[in-house]
């Protein structure tokens, strides 16, 4: 099978890899780059576990043809923490018990990161909309919504 060379920024570090034609970005991140934070849930666009940011916007890596990120910036959960120091958003997930099995968590974190970057003070409805493409099958959404609100500017969790 023919291979295509691509270069992109992965969590602010330049990477160059050869990709199989037709390969999706999720496979390239996990198998070629070794970043296991984006998860494979369905490969069909329904679960959101594979969510990454491409040039700052949330995108499903399982439905992204790998070569379309050539020359672009891809960000994943692996780039959120500074070594062992978790980001404020990650700490808020811990404090709010927003993960049980954790399978959806990486996708949730990236959808929340995209939201908070453009909208540092989201309403509860805006948080719900931002994670509407991410399924969680065990924690339940309330804890996740509260964590994202906690991590937002203004901080205090708003229920309602």
């Amino acid at each position: 099978m023919a291979k295509t060379p691509i270069r992109f920024s992965h969590n602010r570090e330049e990477k160059a890899v050869f990709v199989d034609e037709g390969a999706n970005l999720l496979d390239v991140l996990r198998r070629s780059i070794g970043d296991l934070t984006p998860k494979y849930g369905c490969g069909q666009g329904t679960c959101g576990a594979c969510t990454v940011l491409v040039d700052g916007a949330p995108q499903l890596s399982c439905l992204t043809l790998a070569e379309t990120v050539d020359g672009r910036a891809v960000d994943t959960v692996a780039g959120l923490s500074d070594g062992a120091r978790l980001s404020a958003l990650q700490r808020a997930f811990m404090d709010n018990f927003a993960a049980q099995c954790g399978y959806c968590t990486d996708g949730m974190l990236m959808s929340a990161t995209a939201l908070l970057k453009h909208n540092p003070r989201p309403t509860r409805e805006e948080v719900v909309e931002a994670i509407s493409g991410n399924l969680c099958r065990c924690t339940g959404y309330e804890a996740i919504i509260n964590a994202i609100l906690d991590a937002s500017q203004g901080g205090a969790r708003r229920t309602g």
Partner: peptide, 9 residues
């Protein structure tokens, strides 16, 4: 149409 990740692309 879909969620935010779908609408990006």
């Amino acid at each position: 149409v879909g969620g935010p990740q779908v609408r990006t692309t």
